[in-house]
Nucleic acid binder design. Structure first.
Lengths: 221, 221
DNA sequence: TAGATTGTTAATCGATTAACAATC
DNA sequence: TAGATTGTTAATCGATTAACAATC
């Protein structure tokens, strides 16, 4: 166990582990090896062991990892052992879709407020939350101890919304607007930009179309 | 110019460059340096030059890059100089939200068909497309020459949908279900999983809360 | 005990950054 | 010409993987 600087790549894999561990737990599987995890998650077993070892000695030699115990530990590491309140800004289609994922975010993250700058949206109900006007942003964030903001507004408004979230004391932002947000360095920003995802996929389309059939032998399922 | 193996990291930056270049073009800026690009996109200028140099000598020493020319080149590299048809499977909230992004995907990617397994959804209109039943999946993909599939179904259905997309001749998949899909290696899969994004953000929340104020000096805006 | 599997070190691999000659 | 900026090589940095002693 060492707690130097954990790389973002490691941190991003933890929720992936957690998700599959939850599935195992649901199936009442008591233990799992890095081998099995690696196979299921398309990762190198050594990498998984190393990732986990950054945070503690969670496994048992010859046995593997106790599923329930590892779930508990990863949830602690990710701070999902406490409720984390989230605010969503932008009550459009995407914001609407995300607010429905509260069920998914069961691990103690919860969207507790929704905001929109447009009066046409304010007051409408989204998934038993009432869309609030931007004027109430700061007070709501502070009153509810909201720590994470999700931005689902059009790109031209995104930086302004980010600035307001930061000014209101938010600590991290998940940004769905296709723009690079600027913020103070202590604010963590993840950008979820599926236009970028989709366009980079296009690169891998095979225009040649020749030797595609040969490669089809090794099926990974 | 070398065309060995381009790493995925490089490919994923290209759409980011393209997006900002489009903005510059819109503002009628004629040329841009790697320096300026780096500043705006939070990337090292040397990295940008290197990324672009994989594909050709697009810049001019002492001048920088011609915006229009670079846009043209990147679109060619990403294969966005041709129309790429996309199918979306899963007409729930998220699918609905994404189908509205057709405007965003202006660079010649187009969602041309939407499918759902549930009879309650089939026949309804989404963004002037009619939701089709799964039985028509293969024929529609083949008739429209659809090459990319977007999966927005619940996680338990995702692998099955992926298998059917692959069997229908799709070449790449953008997966929004929180699951690791298995597919033959020649099928490119990108997973856009915002529960993972959000949970990894939680890690960076500062529970100490002490020296936050000091770090707030260097504002990146 | 024998087999399995961890935690960790060392080796490898790959990606980022610095530096600079070439040149617009 | 002098200043700016590319393309590219070399140096650095970091992440992944292999290997194996420790041990359940």
């Amino acid at each position: 166990m060492k707690s130097d600087k954990i790389s973002e790549a490691v941190v991003r894999r933890l929720p992936v582990y957690l998700r599959y561990l939850n599935e195992l737990h649901h199936r009442e599987v008591p233990t799992v090896s890095s081998q099995e995890l690696g196979q299921k998650l398309d990762l190198n077993p050594a990498q998984i062991r190393k990732d986990l070892a950054y945070f503690g000695d969670f496994g048992r030699k010859g046995i593997g990892y106790d599923v329930s115990y590892l779930i508990e530990k990863i949830r602690q590491i990710l701070k999902l052992d406490q409720q984390i309140n989230v605010v969503l800004v932008g009550a459009g289609n995407l914001g609407h879709a995300l607010s429905n994922y509260n069920a998914f975010l069961k691990d103690n993250m919860k969207i507790v407020a929704v905001f929109d700058a447009h009066t046409s949206k304010v007051g409408s109900r989204i998934n038993n939350l009432t869309v609030q006007p931007m004027e109430e942003l700061t007070s709501t964030i502070q009153d509810h101890g909201i720590r994470i903001g999700i931005i689902t507004v059009p790109d031209v408004e995104a930086q302004n919304v980010a600035d307001r979230l930061v000014a209101s004391g938010i600590e991290a932002i998940l940004n769905f607007a296709p723009i690079i947000l600027k913020a103070p360095p202590q604010i963590r920003i993840h950008t979820a930009d599926f236009t970028t995802d989709l366009q980079s996929l296009a690169y891998y389309l095979d225009n040649g179309k020749e030797e595609v059939k040969d490669a089809a032998t090794e099926m990974g399922h």
